[in-house]
Design a protein around this nucleic acid. Structure first.
Lengths: 351, 351
DNA sequence: TTGTAGGCGTTATCAA
DNA sequence: TTGATAACGCCTACAA
């Protein structure tokens, strides 16, 4: 009567111990370290377990072991919004690759009522991956209080926080250099308009870094910021934004020979619109993008672009995190993953 | 000496209770039900909490409350593979939309050593979303033993298991009907080759249902299965598979006027290859696909296709699951989410 | 090899 | 309003 008052209680280790005629310890061993009990005991216990339908409670194990076998990805926005960004999907894939062998699970953790720190408080994970500078101080504080290790992707390299970055500035510099090497001198740059706080797809700092890279390359070639040959636009990061850019550009008195877009999605939108307007791409106007999303290789001509190594970043970050969780020392706490430039048909020699 | 032997123990509710000069109960109330203690007590406790850096342990709460505030998505493959399928990404977005308000977290749960049931055993979630028929019996058994509610997406409607489906057969029927209404009578169908056990992107049953839908429509219009005007191919579900289809089709003595592909990715691959071969799309050969992936609207001409309501399915499934978790009755345990046909440029009147 | 008992950090019950 | 104390279900020294 003391215990069996609820008919549909889930079956616990005690139930199994009783049913099998062994102690809880024996049962525990049967599941976690069979070598420590007799073969007979093991047989009886597993048999009985099957019979009465016993499944060890993960939660109880977690509490007891102080470990979840899970890592979390702290998202700057709600899940549905975040996953609209293919880059984030790539990162998750990378995390998955790293977690595969160690059978860690991945938790998608959006802010709770706008608050990342609140999300961190409640996260039942062994470690966290953080995106961008959104690792606001409050959240970092909580992670430290909770002693949860974390690795930041695309964060601002600082302090002792482990992070995985790619050289955005350099990548932008490189592709602009490529553009210039093709003889282009009348250039339109389409930057990303940052609407709202957390920009839909990109961190503000990334946008700035890319712009700096562009300008550095231009400067080197003697195209200063205020050159009449250089026009800079800001558009929403979408196909529509790219299309809008196409229209604006066509109205320019001094039409550019190349459009340098800060994202493939805009480049593709722009290219489709230019084609629709009867402009030959790349013959009349060349185009380059950024990110190498799937679509970039699917459109005709393919978009010359910079490949964001999202998967690689996720993979490396997760590996580092797993190290930290295991309390193993990190070889390096600041990793830079290389970009690569993908050459396709959208960029050609200036005609 | 009994307790304070570890210097870096994380601070617990007892520590706070002691530091604040109240009982654990009072502390618990301060965090969960402040109305039940005096304002003064609340003030002191929260103040002290901040000072000593106390954060309630989620795990301990989970064990105590028997609830995780998390749902899991049971993936048929590893995370990186699964997320290559945009349809699955859409589903996750849908889950995210549903979880937003209730601040549930989403766990991505891949099989553990090929075993879904093992993954279910260890999942620390309040409920599970299951994909396709991959909810093999063993996994279902474990869910029942653990008393974890679940909802299946694209599963085989059966028994009492709640599920969210879309009428694949009907959708295929509809698009084939559309094709026929445009006057096409010489038709190539490109089906999906099922390589390996869990097909890369599609459940076997979905493929069969779509084929059935195609055939039903054809039959109605007097194009029987063995008509010389109908040729059926099987290709890998990829751009390359579509391209391969294009080549095979062009070698046919009786060239079709339309290619009906079971997936957009194949349709796009096919279209790009046809264009490369100098075939006019849609004038010489029309094309239709299935799924309405992002790319389908980006290529030129756009692919006429059937929109897989992935987000909607995820949303509905998660809402149902949340109901089940709350032990609220389900309005209906079998929901069918409607497809819609998206008309774009790739399909035109037979010339 | 097996069992006893204490700990993991909360929440919930029920007196005081 | 407050505070002991018993769950929650498992793991694991330590003892037998």
């Amino acid at each position: 009567m003391a215990k069996a008052h609820k008919r549909d209680r889930r079956v616990t280790i005690s139930d199994l111990a009783q049913a099998a005629g062994y102690s809880k310890t024996a049962v525990s061993f049967a599941f976690n370290d069979p070598g420590r009990i007799s073969a007979k005991a093991f047989g009886i216990i597993t048999e009985t377990a099957k019979k009465i339908g016993y499944v060890p409670s993960p939660t109880a194990r977690h509490l007891s072991l102080q470990r979840h076998q899970a890592i979390g990805l702290l998202l700057p926005q709600q899940v549905d919004t975040a996953l609209q960004n293919p880059y984030i999907v790539h990162i998750i894939q990378g995390l998955g690759m790293a977690c595969h062998d160690d059978t860690y699970t991945i938790s998608l953790i959006p802010p709770i009522e706008e608050s990342l720190s609140e999300a961190v408080r409640r996260a039942a994970v062994d470690g966290l991956i953080t995106l961008g500078m959104h690792a606001e101080m409050r959240a970092v504080e909580v992670m430290e209080q909770r002693r949860i290790p974390f690795v930041t992707i695309d964060g601002i390299p600082s302090d002792m926080m482990p992070c995985v970055n790619s050289s955005d500035e350099q990548a932008a510099y490189d592709i602009m250099k490529l553009v210039l090497s093709f003889g282009h001198r009348t250039i339109a740059v389409v930057s990303i308009a940052g609407e709202g706080e957390p920009p839909k797809s990109y961190d503000r700092s990334v946008i700035e870094l890319r712009m700096q890279g562009y300008l550095r390359a231009l400067q080197e070639e003697g195209v200063p910021f205020d050159s009449p040959d250089l026009s800079i636009y800001e558009q929403e990061c979408s196909l529509a934004g790219g299309a809008a850019a196409a229209h604006v550009i066509m109205k320019e008195s001094c039409r550019p020979t190349v459009v340098v877009c800060m994202s493939d999605i805009m480049a593709i939108g722009c290219q489709l619109e230019l084609l629709k307007l009867g402009i030959q791409v790349p013959d009349e106007i060349s185009l380059v993008g950024h990110d190498d999303i799937d679509m970039a290789s699917a459109v005709a001509p393919g978009i010359t672009t910079v490949r964001q190594p999202g998967r690689m970043k996720g993979l490396v970050a997760a590996q580092m995190l797993l190290q930290l969780i295991a309390e193993a020392p990190l070889e390096q706490s600041r990793v830079t993953v290389p970009y690569s430039i993908i050459k396709r048909g959208s960029l050609c020699q200036r005609s």
